[in-house]
Amino acid sequence: MSQNDLPLPTGEFAKLDNGITLHYLDEGQGETIIWLHGSGPGASGYSNFKGNFPSFIEAGYRNIILDLPGFGRSDKPDDIQYNLDFFVETLNLFITQLELTNCILLGNSLGGAIALGQALKHPSTVSKLLLMAPGGVEERETYFQMEGIRRMVEVYQSGPMGVDEMRQVMQLQLFDSSRLSDALLEERAAVAKTQPANLFSTMMVPNMTERLHELDCPILGFWGTNDLFNPPEGMFKFLHNAKECRFLMLNQCGHWVQVEHEKLFNRTCIDFLKNN
């Protein structure tokens, strides 16, 4: 399947100075929120956040729903290292090219780690952070002990990911896997077939816990107690180290807070943004 045939909406494309072309949806007017998705096979900005950004449009925000390199409709080179430095460099080039300033970064999992990396390296570009089970606060070995990560690696290495294989991975994302629609699984399986083999093998994210005290921007975070991909205890690393930070811990909730608790997530984020 080619990039053009993917079952995803087509938005805008930005060719960056490092040669990478990124795809993004640009919806709404107002203060800018950049939406950064997680790293699961077949992920895209739209598949992660389709139930969320319409509420933010109504609340008066400009929403840039980004496909990270290696995902969605963005470029997927097979000759680079997909480490945090590369993702942050690419995000910062994107912010610069679109002449964005003082952005709100919203990130889930890998997207949360990228948001942290951007805020630490380029603090003047970030006004607030909205984080859902963010990566970047554990050692790599800790993540690979998690049931969800182990299943993802096992299925990904066994061969091409069809709908059934995608279901094996995605059902661990949610506390209630009945919320997984066939359409979502088909959407992600199609994207997974276009992803390079080196995407996950070179995905290195350092533990940034000791640098959290450097963050000056307000932080709102979410974590599910039933998260099988990122240890929920990571929440306390933020609360103990970041200067201005609050987290909601939700029971009967997995790795996708924004999906399992869509209305609560949307309402809580918008209230935070309007009052901080």
Rank of each mutant, 00 (worst) to 15 (best):
T10W: 05
T21G: 00
L25V: 10
T32D: 05
T32S: 11
I33P: 11
H37Y: 01
S39K: 01
G40H: 02
G42V: 10
F49M: 03
G51W: 05
F53A: 02
D67L: 02
D67S: 00
R73E: 10
K76A: 12
P77I: 00
I80Y: 00
Q81P: 02
Q81A: 08
E89N: 11
L93W: 08
N102L: 02
I104S: 01
L105Y: 02
L130V: 15
A133T: 14
A133S: 15
P134G: 08
R140W: 12
Q145E: 15
Q145K: 10
I149Y: 10
R151N: 13
M152T: 15
V155K: 04
G159Q: 10
M166I: 13
R167G: 09
L180A: 08
E186T: 07
R188V: 05
A192M: 07
Q195D: 07
A197C: 08
M203S: 11
M204S: 11
E214S: 05
L215P: 01
L220D: 08
F222S: 03
W223Q: 13
F229E: 06
P231Y: 14
G234E: 10
F238Y: 13
F238L: 05
L239Q: 14
C245K: 05
V257I: 14
V257Y: 05
K263I: 15
C269W: 10
F272I: 06
N276W: 09
